[in-house]
């Protein structure tokens, strides 16, 4: 998968400019940067929700001209539908994406089983019949991850998905995402402002500059996988985070 942006601007404000980013198929990329650097614009560009004013975006070799139809997305808010059970929330993409959409009614039971398997993977065994308001914030966010993955998207876009959670739940969900990625092998672009999160999860961390946003540095994280949470306390890891932090400080000036 190749993503190349040359520039984009919204209503008079240039959100991102001269932004070049390549993400290999199956890679885990993280994008970090100061607040307001156009990270969310990047998300919308990559999924085709917003068209660039200049430049091109390609996913899987094909130019992005409209919404890409194969992306899974999760945001800081879980955005679950309160009138649907957890299972039905996870199934929502299948009611929209072809070819599942056509088969959905007929194969409802198969799809439900698939949703339950995915929920079990993130530790939500037995919660399928519950409603979102009965779950904690962390559990809602796990559901949101499942919803983003149920249709086996080629590209998973995460926009600060763990930012609203407490520190322990956040680390727990890092592991959930790490395991899901290791198991299923999708391409991830994780937008975050948490450097430890980026360093722990990603293959490559891209640092964005303040508005207009562009990639000012890319750093490969060569820590061995699978990574355990304890790695966060290794000197090597701390060095990486420190290095990333100083680069962000540079671009903030």
């Amino acid at each position: 998968m190749t993503l190349t942006y040359a520039g984009a601007s919204g209503d008079g404000v240039t959100a991102v400019q001269g932004l070049d980013l390549n993400v290999e198929r199956g890679a885990f990329a993280a994008v970090v940067g100061p607040s307001g650097c156009g990270k969310s614009t990047l998300m919308k560009l990559a999924t085709g929700l917003v068209r660039p004013n200049e430049g091109r975006i390609a996913v899987d070799g094909a130019l992005v001209k409209g919404p890409v139809k194969i992306a899974g997305m999760a945001f800081q808010n879980a955005n679950l539908l309160p009138w649907r059970t957890i299972r039905d929330n996870v199934l929502l993409p299948l009611e929209i994406v072809e070819p599942h959409r056509r088969r959905f009614r007929r194969n409802k039971a198969d799809y439900a089983a698939r949703a339950d398997r995915l929920l079990a993977l993130v530790g939500l065994d037995g919660f399928a019949e519950r409603f979102p308001w009965e779950l904690s914030g962390g559990m809602q966010q796990r559901t949101s991850l499942c919803r983003a993955l149920i249709h086996e998207p080629a590209l998973l876009m995460l926009d600060e998905p763990f930012a609203a959670l407490d520190a322990f739940t956040r680390e727990e969900l890092w592991c959930v995402l790490r395991d899901l990625w290791a198991r299923i092998g999708f391409t991830v672009i994780l937008v975050t402002h948490d450097l430890r999160e980026a360093a722990f999860l990603a293959d490559t961390v891209h640092v964005m500059s303040a508005r207009p946003g562009r990639i000012v540095a890319s750093r490969a994280i060569e820590l061995p996988r699978p990574r355990a949470l304890d790695i966060c306390f290794e000197p090597e890891f701390v060095d990486i985070v420190h290095d990333l932090r100083s680069r962000i400080s540079e671009v903030r000036q």
């Binding site: 999924t47 929700l49 890409v68 139809k69 997305m73 999760a74 808010n77 955005n79 929209i96």
Partner: peptide, 18 residues
Amino acid sequence: TEPELEDVLRALGARKLD
């Protein structure tokens, strides 16, 4: 309707009617 939720669905190729 929450714009983010709309984004989630549009990124799946949902039409306005969906």
